[in-house]
Design a protein around this nucleic acid. Sequence first.
DNA 1: GTGAAAGCGCTAACAT
DNA 2: ATGTTAGCGCTTTCAC
Lengths: 334, 334
Amino acid sequence: MVAERAGVSPSAVSRVFTPGASVSPKTEEKVRKAVAELGYRPNVLARAMVSGRSRIIGLVIAYLENQFYPEVLEKLSNALQAQGYHILVFMASSETGEIDEVVEQILDYQVDGIVLASVSLSSDLASRCQAAGVPVVMFNRFQDIDGLSAVTSDNAGGARRVGQFLIAGGHERIAYIAGWEGASTQRDREAGFRAALAEGGRTLFARACGNFEREPTAGAVRELFAGQEGDRPDAVFVAGDQMALFAMDVLRFELGLSVPGDVSVVGFDDVPSASWLSYQLTTVRQQAALMVERTVAALLSAIETPQAANPTHEAIEAPLILRASARVPEGWKT
Amino acid sequence: MVAERAGVSPSAVSRVFTPGASVSPKTEEKVRKAVAELGYRPNVLARAMVSGRSRIIGLVIAYLENQFYPEVLEKLSNALQAQGYHILVFMASSETGEIDEVVEQILDYQVDGIVLASVSLSSDLASRCQAAGVPVVMFNRFQDIDGLSAVTSDNAGGARRVGQFLIAGGHERIAYIAGWEGASTQRDREAGFRAALAEGGRTLFARACGNFEREPTAGAVRELFAGQEGDRPDAVFVAGDQMALFAMDVLRFELGLSVPGDVSVVGFDDVPSASWLSYQLTTVRQQAALMVERTVAALLSAIETPQAANPTHEAIEAPLILRASARVPEGWKT
DNA sequence: GTGAAAGCGCTAACAT
DNA sequence: ATGTTAGCGCTTTCAC
């Protein structure tokens, strides 16, 4: 249609819209004119059909209540948009069965790649993605399945630093509030934390599970602090900020304890509200921007050079951010 | 491919996947068998090309830091998924020029509909969408442009209730912190609030603009509370929860004031953190679930029956939620 | 109820 | 540098 208006062949039009194709200035001129007059825009879907590239990335995401994820979504979307890709979103709850179903749906859209944010995949479906030539990268989750790349924080390292920090701070009864036990982040954080305690000749004073959710976290706190003074933790490492914030609220307003006076609290994530004046949560930062950058890089390289398919696990450094919710050891250097 | 494996024509296969098409049990049987063996799944894009329906909804969204939006995104995505649609996300900053560009990109994907969350569109582009037969619904923004539907809260009504509540609470110096002046939500809330004051024979004691952002809000609070006691507001209505929460922090921790002892604070949105124990923010609730429901309904009806294209503006009731950040008038009934 | 044929809007060889 | 041809995977008349 544009073609005839411009008096050229369809291929000529196509070439005008293909960066790096050879068109004479004259032809280009004619085409651009027709395009402007008709308000023409290429049909991405038609292009996708024939070229096999849809420029769509499927994103499976859950836990949007956790502020970390909106931040990630925003950054991911922006980074991808900058490369001419767009995100098709799929909300998921955390059951693997459902995820598989959702990933099948994604595949139906002929996406060029898939990002799995904090959800796991069956190895069966992972291979189907591979078979379909669709690269998958796991974000903030690690799964040792062939062909899956992963980008996470250095969860163990970050958590280890928390352990050292708490020990150095002179805490005697150090507790841990776990996230959902099925999450690799939870496992790695706990492992790193326990390792640090062990290195310091300590063991966990108490442990409870908050499941990354509000009410379970409140329950975990009550459980941990049921005893008398001297029999209660004087420090708590919480596996996620969202939980840590709830925990602080329960500690202060329900149990009447002072943070960090009676008990130090340390979180993990560094969500925006961690820095709010009401909380001033000392926490381990997940460097969202960096994580996203690596995710996009891994994805695009897999898309553009499928043969160089060497799935990688990148663990981004996770620094401890000192604020006011935990006693700072004298002379502590970041 | 499935067709030959099943020994039938392509059309037969197509019919099996078309609800309500007439296929004999025998043929269906054969096709389903071949489908299972081959792990076949229909190509959504190919279907979209020929049918003209992509089952993709474009969503333009910004302000993901405001907790209200992740919530909306999640609900919207779920509701649409339930209807067999999926969301293609486009992040946008708030400049209209950029939005236009983004919407053009969306159109390139042959989306079946567009949801604009808190962004505005030029009337020019609005007509292009209409011309393309793509229904647009504005979410949480109202714009009086032909062909645009809108779903918002009853912002004026909700804000009016705040005014009445504050007056009834015996407040004498009532201030207002505005959001971004370009937003219809901001305008409607301010108008409703001022109307209530006027009805009560009052006027605004002071006004400052927080722009829906963190630092500007802190500045607004400092500005409002620069005077001596008795010369400062004893109540503040803040046009959004995110700002209200920041305001409370500044009031308490920077200015050393007590909320609600020295000053009552009321917000608008009812984001999750408004109910956290540290804040207990009295606020006006935007009923996200309802708003999303109406948005989906408007969208789908416009998609399925294009002729019945009567753009509507639905204003969802916005109830006042009483918590602890504002003095409650004696005998106040919700 | 089923198949044959045409075509959605575009790009990728292949000729020229 | 440009046009011609074929075809991506599907749905949709239209005959049968």
